[in-house]
Design a binder for these strands. Sequence first.
DNA 1: TTGTAGGCGTTATCAA
DNA 2: TTGATAACGCCTACAA
Lengths: 342, 342
Amino acid sequence: MSSITIVDIARLCGVGVTTVSRAINNHPDINEETKAKIMQVIKEHNYVPNNSARNLKRSDSKTVAVLVKGINNPFFMRMIRVFEKEIQKKRYSFHLQHVDDQMDEIDVAIELAKEKRLKGIVFLGGYFSHTKEKLERLNVPFVLSTVGLTEYMNQDQYSFVSVDDFKESFKMVDYLISLGHRNIAMIAAGENDRSIGKLRLEGYKKALEKHGIPYDERLIRRMKENIEVYSMANGYAVTKELLEDELDVTAIFAISDSLAIGACKAIFEAGKKVPDDCSVAGFDGLDISYYYHPSITTIKQPVDRLAEETIKTLFDLINKKVTHAHLTFPAELVIRDSTRAL
Amino acid sequence: MSSITIVDIARLCGVGVTTVSRAINNHPDINEETKAKIMQVIKEHNYVPNNSARNLKRSDSKTVAVLVKGINNPFFMRMIRVFEKEIQKKRYSFHLQHVDDQMDEIDVAIELAKEKRLKGIVFLGGYFSHTKEKLERLNVPFVLSTVGLTEYMNQDQYSFVSVDDFKESFKMVDYLISLGHRNIAMIAAGENDRSIGKLRLEGYKKALEKHGIPYDERLIRRMKENIEVYSMANGYAVTKELLEDELDVTAIFAISDSLAIGACKAIFEAGKKVPDDCSVAGFDGLDISYYYHPSITTIKQPVDRLAEETIKTLFDLINKKVTHAHLTFPAELVIRDSTRAL
DNA sequence: TTGTAGGCGTTATCAA
DNA sequence: TTGATAACGCCTACAA
């Protein structure tokens, strides 16, 4: 049961462990012949170095980790793929770690950083509200990528890369108004959301204000807490209630594409049509927003750009080229078939 | 920069390292008072044990890993959540690891098993064709969960849990035929697929045969290799070509829901309707198949059941209650709005 | 170019 | 109930 170790390989080859170690790690000071022979023996005996031992001994490691909160979010999949590609370009290795919803991402990060001797960390998704003190314990460079930030956090405590949720939300609602809509419902985050959800709501309000449309609390529909947030099921449930209230809504702005699709389902089920009876707009620009029928008007996040800049920023941090960077990128209003002019 | 260690804590508390170790690991032989004090100091100094060191020293570990191939598959998300829940029920800890498409899952597993002293492994997704010799190197119990298996692999080399892809595929095509369809196109896997894709194709053939419908090679459309497999984009591209060929197809059976949705897009784009001009059926039973408009007729895999039984089987293996188990569960033909009788 | 020996942070053994 | 001390498997001065 007990595995073969570097010592066994050394003995098998009639050399010292150092030499084997050199062979494994591509060190320069080694005779090519002995190296070849060692590698041969390693292959034959299926020797696999124990990573725990390596990590324990090593001080540096050339690996960065990506901690994802809410891995069920299809929006992240693409981001992760780009992360992986970019990190490999830098000849670093990449560790993807899923963080449970109820877990504290910083705790996970601290532990992982120690274990793997991480050079840097990307936090993807989730909200983020940690004390300065806690952030300092994580003495590894990190970047927040499209995570919701609370207003309480001081900007000089972290770096982030994302879109401007306020502005993009404003853009969409402004567009809907320009189509002639005035009774625009919103599928929003919960009452106590202090990050993305709040910003998108502010954008909505601002657009209304610009056009002199009074804000009507009844049109703001919060996601249900007992259903997975940002999901199609949630959008469906919320919209069903909305329609029952007969508020004469002509457009619905959902803060995610999945919510928007759920909303469409509820509308169809009520015997109405999208966009004829009610326009629906989403947010994110997932593939499905394009493939859905009707295709969904949405705010398309610049996924590749966001991911690339996240990694670039992280490495700038690692190489101490910057102290902190705060980048926001413009998203694109993609007009499709789920919205129409009144 | 260098972190605080167990030795520091011991010194700080005026006790030996062993005692601190006992406190950390909830060992019985320790005075409650000293333990409380130690934990207090640990809190204050934010001491976090180094996992590499722990794993290096430990022999057992009560952790099982789930290796996912193709994390972009939304079908797996739900499975993973159930895995996590079930594993925690057993008071084991859970490690989720993503495996790159081009990486060999067994190699990853072997390395991880060593590093983390794994008790067991679940392989989720991907195909599986490994030599017996290689499988034996992984001397840790494992279960293949909804992975494609090749006919070349001997059943007594592994355990698996999945649906019967042949039977379920047959069920769907048989249903389509019962609706009066005879010209049924299939969006299938690549030519050299030897696992799920092949089984589903065999099911299709069998159903045709049962009803005396001749098999027409032109109706079998393989996923494009240059587009992500099983994706909406792939279903769209393939269907577009199919429609151009004007083969008078009345129904399309796609081997995944995503492919089916892509197919619908292509049909709509051609100015036709689903199901009026062409019925479309999928496979998997993803949420989106329900929310799509029209809702998609599909084969719904019993996700929860599959996941639960996977973990149950894994622990049976770990506890040596069984040598190998091969479980297939029935999936459900869910009839919805994307198919109609001719 | 190669080998010896010490240490990385923890847990397990055994004696006190 | 506690504490030295020897592993765990690897890497890396340092010496040869």
